[in-house]
Computed example of a mutant assay.
Amino acid sequence: MASAEHILRVRRLYKLIFRVHRGLPAELRVLGDNYARDEFKRHKTCNMAEANVFLNEWTDYAINIAKQMKPLHQAKKKTVGKDLDPRMLDYMTDEQIVQLYELHKAAHNETTDNESLQNNNTKT
């Protein structure tokens, strides 16, 4: 059974991720919220070693997104996110690689759908 301190840490991180996502563009916010929610549900019953890795990675994610939401960064870069180091694929399971690919497809479809909507709106 997880300690009260561990549960509190997970809840704080979970809430922090959703607060940080508020600064994202609407389509990325929905995608990010859904992905985070699903990942936290999937790891609800993982062992402590996996939980520590999971929490460290999501903490790094939250810190990186928070930095990118700062106005100065937005003014200079106008981008959100960073490229995945290809070496990370060596550490992923087949299931994780498929999940990453599905996320990539969903993100690409969101971008394509939004671009076509904008093009249609400018034509009318």
Rank of each mutant, 00 (worst) to 15 (best):
M1W: 04
S3H: 09
S3V: 02
S3F: 09
H6E: 14
L8T: 09
R9S: 07
V10R: 12
R11S: 12
Y14K: 03
Y14E: 02
L16T: 13
L16R: 15
L16S: 11
L16H: 05
I17N: 00
F18V: 02
V20M: 01
V20F: 00
V20I: 15
H21N: 15
H21S: 11
R22A: 07
R22F: 06
G23T: 01
L24T: 01
P25R: 14
P25V: 09
A26F: 05
V30H: 06
L31M: 01
G32R: 00
N34I: 01
N34A: 08
Y35H: 14
E39S: 04
E39Q: 15
R42G: 10
K44A: 14
T45W: 03
T45L: 10
C46P: 00
N47T: 03
A49E: 14
A49L: 07
N52Y: 07
F54C: 01
L55S: 01
N56H: 10
E57K: 14
W58Q: 06
T59S: 10
D60R: 13
Y61V: 05
A62G: 03
N64H: 14
I65M: 08
A66E: 09
K67I: 05
M69H: 03
K70C: 04
L72R: 11
L72Y: 08
L72N: 07
H73A: 04
Q74A: 09
K76E: 11
K77I: 10
V80Y: 15
V80H: 12
V80C: 08
G81A: 08
K82H: 12
L84W: 04
D85I: 09
R87S: 13
M88S: 10
L89I: 13
L89E: 06
D90V: 05
D90Q: 14
Y91I: 03
Y91D: 13
M92H: 06
T93A: 07
T93N: 03
D94R: 07
E95N: 06
Q96C: 05
V98L: 04
Q99F: 02
Q99P: 00
L103R: 11
L103V: 02
K105L: 15
K105N: 11
A106Q: 14
A106C: 06
A106L: 12
A106V: 03
H108K: 13
N109D: 10
T111H: 13
T112Q: 12
D113V: 06
D113H: 10
D113F: 08
D113C: 04
D113M: 11
N114A: 15
N114M: 10
E115M: 13
S116G: 01
L117P: 01
L117R: 15
L117I: 08
Q118V: 06
Q118A: 15
N119L: 14
N120R: 12
T124G: 12
